[in-house]
């Protein structure tokens, strides 16, 4: 497992590194440390990593811009910060976890468990997804997302109230996110269901369940589009609607 730590105080770096090595021994962690994010950026561009442990001061505007660009990346980000009052905002933008300083071994371990168990959701569902598009970061409100489609190592975000989506599948309003569908799933709020190996659907945007040929089911979205439901997922979808009644 490849982990990058960004933290400027040596003793804290030492602490994070020491505890990480202890907790993740089985996963043979390879840890690289940087004093600040500018130094780390070059490395992050050229290397594939699994986790970014980021010391971030979210009190200023710069901190937020930085966070937005990190959460659009393929890897998960866990923020370790002294400013605990900004935790919710960090979650809303899509960090996997937010660790307030000072922290102990157990807290760090809980965060790593969340990372490792891909079925486990983040503590607080995100409200935005940030996407890199033509070198810029775009922020998409999660309520605007209709469904998410797996696209190899990436995910394709389809937005609601978008007539053109029917006409052209590769329309410009579909956004490519760097995270794979499992990682995105971890960040999403509970109204998003993994209905298929390749699909996550915003259930607020679903019209009804439809049966098509044989015993196959699909979801009809409010714009008329059909999303297939995986055989193993049908029960979960049914339960979701059951809970609503």
């Amino acid at each position: 497992m490849r982990i990058v730590i960004v933290e400027d105080e040596p003793l804290i770096v030492q602490r994070i590194k020491r505890l990480t090595l202890e907790i993740l021994t089985e996963h043979q962690p390879q840890i690289v440390c940087f004093g600040d994010i500018d130094d780390a950026d070059d490395y992050l561009c050229e290397n594939v990593i699994d986790l970014l442990l980021l010391d971030l001061n979210l009190m200023g505007r710069d901190g937020f811009e930085l966070l937005k660009s990190k959460v659009s990346a393929a890897y998960h980000t866990i923020v370790i910060s002294a400013y605990a009052d900004k935790a919710i905002v960090a979650f809303e933008y899509g960090v996997l976890d937010f660790i307030a300083k000072p922290f102990d071994r157990d807290r760090l371990e809980a965060a790593f468990n969340r990372l490792l168990a891909s079925s486990q959701k983040s503590f607080y569902g995100c409200r935005y997804l940030s996407v890199k598009k033509q070198g810029c970061i775009e922020i998409i409100a999660i309520s605007d997302v209709s469904y998410i489609q797996a696209e190899g190592h990436y995910s394709l975000l389809h937005l609601c109230n978008n007539e053109s989506a029917l006409v052209n599948k590769n329309d410009s309003t579909a956004y490519l996110h760097n995270k794979n569908i499992e990682k995105i799933m971890q960040l999403l709020p509970i109204n998003f269901l993994r209905v298929h190996r390749s699909y996550i659907v915003n259930m607020d945007n679903v019209d009804k369940i439809q049966i098509i040929e044989g015993s196959r089911y699909s979801l009809k979205l409010s714009n008329g589009q059909l999303i297939p439901i995986g055989r193993t997922k049908y029960k979960e979808v049914k339960e979701y609607f059951g809970n609503l009644d």
Binding site: R15, A82, D104
Partner: peptide, 18 residues
């Protein structure tokens, strides 16, 4: 301010353990 205080406390935790 938290930046100073919390970082110090984190370092203290590390020092106490090491």
């Amino acid at each position: 301010q938290p930046h100073f205080l919390m970082n110090c406390l984190t370092q203290l935790m590390e020092l106490i353990e090491i």
